[in-house]
Write a protein that binds this DNA or RNA. Structure first.
Lengths: 189, 189
DNA sequence: CGTTACATGTAACGTCCGTTACATGATGAC
DNA sequence: GTCATCATGTAACGGACGTTACATGTAACG
């Protein structure tokens, strides 16, 4: 059975995913989620507490989704390059809005750390570590890991700006092919 | 001779570069630039007008700086890969804050187009076109151009988050080397 | 000197913000 | 049935917001 608050968290998550963080304000949020500013404070102590809880809930959902991504690899699927696997997971309809929000948080924290950095610590997906972990060991040096993370971030940014899934995905494929072709990574050198 | 307003624009640009866009408010801005909210409205009509003018001024400065970057290539410098040239220009102390702000604007416009997209149109550096234009013609296909733009954006994002000029620059060098090595781009295939 | 245009100060308007005080339903325990 | 606990509604607080009304200073021009 779902408590009132859990249902509320669901609505708030949905609202934040749609409207972003920067202009969040309690009364419109309350109206959109069928409650009142009074009750938001009652359940979450403060706006800051609300954001903390909601961002934690989001992070938990993303982690769950990520775990689900890794499961079926035991099955007989043809193996995809890890970067491509990660990409299609991130741009899937179910996960895309979460990433959008986390990128917004990242930028807000850069420009206004006093206000937003506190949420970032809790919500560091630790993206670079995650990407590093899926890179085959022989290539696991800092420069290449940073590059892979940047390709991912940059393509996602481009996707958010243009909505062009096809072109961004092709660009990722190109990257993967170039890396595969590069002399520095081929066995015969 | 500098009019009062031109001097004011300078101060406001400096303030915005330091504090970002998302939480801009007239009274603190006025206090920091030695004027009053009353006068800001007087000179710029409205907050929206102020942002429009200031962002235009920023864009003009960046364009000037970019023009200065291209000039000395007539001289006897050793040619750098275009991406690397662009990168060192963008992360130079004088330009870095402008890029930071433009990335913030980009993200804000993605999450809240009603409020911010209007500024984006005027301030589209037309990044992808710019990057496309510096790519040698034989490689000028959409996927590769998108990839180069993404590498740039992603590395800049990483730089903003971590401040690690060295690692991000090394990652760019790695990208350039990988591209140079890739079979798909070598003459002997 | 008077006029005109630009520049500036003071104070307020109405609105929204996060938050709180206070009262009151609902629900289950004893 | 009473009592405690959770939940909720109404209304307001003090403050910040963008903006405006109104008066005043300043300076160049006739």
């Amino acid at each position: 059975m779902m408590t009132r608050k859990e249902a509320l968290v669901d609505s708030i998550v949905a609202y934040l995913l749609e409207h972003g963080l920067a202009d969040l304000s309690l009364r419109p949020l309350a109206a959109a989620t069928g409650t009142s500013a009074r009750l938001l404070i009652y359940h979450f102590e403060s706006k800051e507490g609300l954001l903390t809880e909601i961002l934690e809930a989001m992070q938990a959902r993303l982690r769950q989704s990520f775990a689900r991504l890794l499961e079926p690899q035991a099955g007989g699927k043809q193996p995809q390059p890890p970067l491509k696997l990660l990409w299609h997971w991130a741009i899937a309809d179910a996960n895309y809005p979460y990433f959008k929000l986390l990128y917004e948080l990242q930028i807000l924290a850069i420009q206004n750390p006093e206000a937003y950095a506190q949420y970032l610590q809790r919500n560091a997906l630790n993206w670079s570590d995650l990407i590093l972990s899926i890179i085959p060991a022989p290539r696991r040096d800092p420069a290449f890991a940073t590059l892979c993370g940047a390709v991912f971030d940059g393509l996602f940014l481009e996707l958010m700006g243009t909505g062009d899934r096809k072109r961004t995905t092709q660009a990722l494929d190109r990257f993967i092919r170039i890396v595969g072709d590069a002399r520095a990574f081929r066995a015969d050198t």
